[in-house]
Each structure stands twice: as structure tokens, then as C-alpha cells.
Design a protein around this nucleic acid. Structure first.
Lengths: 176, 176
DNA sequence: TTTTTCATACAGTTTAAACTGAACAAACTT
DNA sequence: AAGTTTGTTCAGTTTAAACTGTATGAAAAA
């Protein structure tokens, strides 16, 4: 039988789990940081993370800030301790889905608005193009813009439909 | 009234649309390439793309290959033409959702399998840890592994629920 | 108050990604 | 067959991202 020690296994799990975290748009470093934080389970200090990842404290500081902004990690206060402690939330699915959905819906919505503004602007300037060789190009652009805006609307809806709680999925299972 | 020419507006739309495409994990260059391809509407050659983006033909070649692999772009054959032509599919939503869902479900599934293998391996070596100080660590790891695997299962399901056709969304609208 | 301990800003360095031009190979033209 | 045209490979370069160490400031300890 192959024999691994727990450290090796920890390493294997971290590497594998980090890959999934990367899917959510995090960099390899950020993903690995989160993976370790989650696997360790107990809150860690910047120095401990630095030690665990073999990277500078500065890197940990910036990395943890990203994770904080995404709300994937939280700072915990410990009595009598001066250092900051951070821990990864237990509920992986809820946290990731919330962060992910929020980020996407938000971006899709903003980009849609921008395109709508461009469309308005284009239509306002319609006369400038209507009597020239640009007429056909104008029509095509207008057409494409409408398709893009529809695309963004569909994206928003699709991502909003993903419920950030696991319970919803279980409910649906029962309905089958 | 502000006056833009069509070229400026084209530029605006391209830039804005590319941002959305980037959300799907494409690099800024790839996203911009797709945006132009979509906006132009007609199939383009590598040289035309190179001209339109102000980048080398080599870049276009590698960029278009990525888009092809994601199935976001297709090669079209033109009678009497020696050059390759490429066009972006009309149906944005369907294409992007298909590509996206496939990529994600696939990755989630693979990573889940890896974690399951590690879990099996861990349990097989359980005796090695049961009588040592590692016992508690072993339990924690095992626990974490189970949570991760569940997380991956939920991810798979959640992404599979996103239908890659807009019609589904319309149907749901009617049911309200 | 002075000293220590911590997190973060910043400038400089290292590392990785994107990009380019020359060379090549395959397909076509003459 | 010889010469073009076209897409891709590859080595080298440029550009951008990641990372580090020193410096700074804030908070706690002495």
C-alpha cells in the first residue's frame, strides 16, 4: 500500500481544491490562499499564511484583501491577540455562489446600461447617417446593438436564477 | 448635439462588449477579437482582423484558435477564396452559455473525481494515523474532504440547471 | 514617552504572459 | 517544376502581473 503522510495529502487536496477556486476568476495565488485557509479550518495570521505558502507577508496582505472584498474570508477578533486573524467561511457553496452571482449580475447590468446609452446616442445622431453611404452601416450597428442588449438581459436573468443556497437544489430534487 | 462618426461608435461598442466577453474567462485580446468579429457580422480573414486590431497576424492565428476551441467562432468556406474566413455565431446567448456551462461542469466534475480519489486513498491509509497524534488531523481532513466533494456536486448541478437556450427563460416568464 | 509589534504603501525586481518577425510547410497558381 | 500565397511554429522581445524588502504609520506594551 502506498504511504503518504498527512502533510502530503494536505498538499494534494490544497492543489486540487485551488483549481476549482480558480474557476471563479481568482488568481492561482489567491485560490491557493483560500484553499489553505479553508483546509486549516482555524483562523490564521498573515505570518502563518506566509509560512504556509512560502511567500512574503506583503503578498498575504494583498491576497487576503481580495478575498475579503469578495466576502470569501472574514477577519476574526481574538482576545488578547494583537495580530489579525482570518478564516474562510464554512459554507463553501453559499459563499461562492453569492460572491459569484453578485459579481456577474453587477457587471452584466453595468455593461448593458453602457450599451443602451450608446444606442440612444446612435439613434439621436441618426440623421447624420441617413442620407449618406453610412445608412446601411447604421442599420447594421443598430441591429447588433439590440442583439447585444438582449444578450445582456438574458445573462442577468440566467445568473439571478442560480440560487446561492444549497437548500433550493434539495427542494427541487424533492419535487421530481 | 455631440457628433460621433460610425467608426467611433463601433469602437465604443467593441470596447464595451469586450468587457462582457472577458467575464467568461477570455483574455482582453481574445474578447476584443470576438467583439469585432461579432460586430462586423461578415466572415473575416486573419489579415483583416490583424488590420482591425492593429496586431500581428500571428496573434490573430492563436487568438482565433482559442475562440474555435471554445466553439464561439466558426470557419467558413468561401468559393474561390484561398484564405480562411471566420465568423462569430449570431446567437450570442446560446453559444456563450453552451461554452461556459460545458467548461465549468467539466472542470467541476474532474476536480470532484480527484478529491474522491484522494478521499479513498486517505481512508485506505487510515490505520497509519489512527494510533498517533495525527488521529485528530485525520478526522478533520476527512471531514473537510467530504464538504469539498459536496460543494463540487452542488456546483455541477447549479451549472447544469442553466439552460443554454433563451427559450427556457421566456417559458418561465409566461408561467408567472 | 519610548519601544515594540503589526499591517500596509511603495519602489524595485522577478516572473509569467502577450506579442512579433523570421522561417517553414502546405496548398495553390502559373 | 518554380514561384506565390497562406497559416502556423518557434525564438526572442516587449509588456504586464506577481512578488519582495524597506519604509511608514498606527496601535499596543513597557
Amino acid at each position: 500500500m502506498s504511504d503518504y503522510n498527512l502533510e502530503d495529502i494536505n498538499e494534494l487536496i490544497t492543489t486540487e481544491f485551488a483549481k476549482t477556486v480558480e474557476m471563479f476568476g481568482l488568481t492561482p495565488s489567491e485560490a491557493r490562499l483560500f484553499a489553505i485557509l479553508y483546509l486549516v479550518g482555524v483562523p490564521m495570521t498573515l505570518d502563518e499564511m506566509s509560512e504556509a505558502l512560502g511567500k512574503s507577508k506583503t503578498s498575504m496582505s494583498t491576497g487576503i484583501r481580495t478575498l475579503l472584498e469578495l466576502n470569501l474570508v472574514e477577519r476574526v477578533w481574538k482576545k488578547g491577540e494583537r495580530k489579525d486573524f482570518y478564516r474562510a467561511d464554512e459554507n463553501l457553496y453559499r459563499k461562492f455562489m453569492s460572491a459569484f452571482i453578485h459579481k456577474w449580475v453587477d457587471a452584466a447590468s453595468r455593461h448593458k446600461q453602457s450599451l443602451e446609452q450608446i444606442e440612444t446616442m446612435l439613434v439621436q445622431n441618426a440623421e447624420n447617417f441617413s442620407f449618406s453611404a453610412d445608412s446601411k452601416e447604421f442599420d447594421k450597428l443598430n441591429d447588433r446593438l439590440k442583439d447585444m442588449i438582449t444578450f445582456h438581459q438574458l445573462l442577468e436573468k440566467a445568473f439571478l436564477r442560480i440560487k446561492p443556497t444549497a437548500s433550493t437544489l434539495i427542494d427541487q430534487k424533492l419535487n421530481h
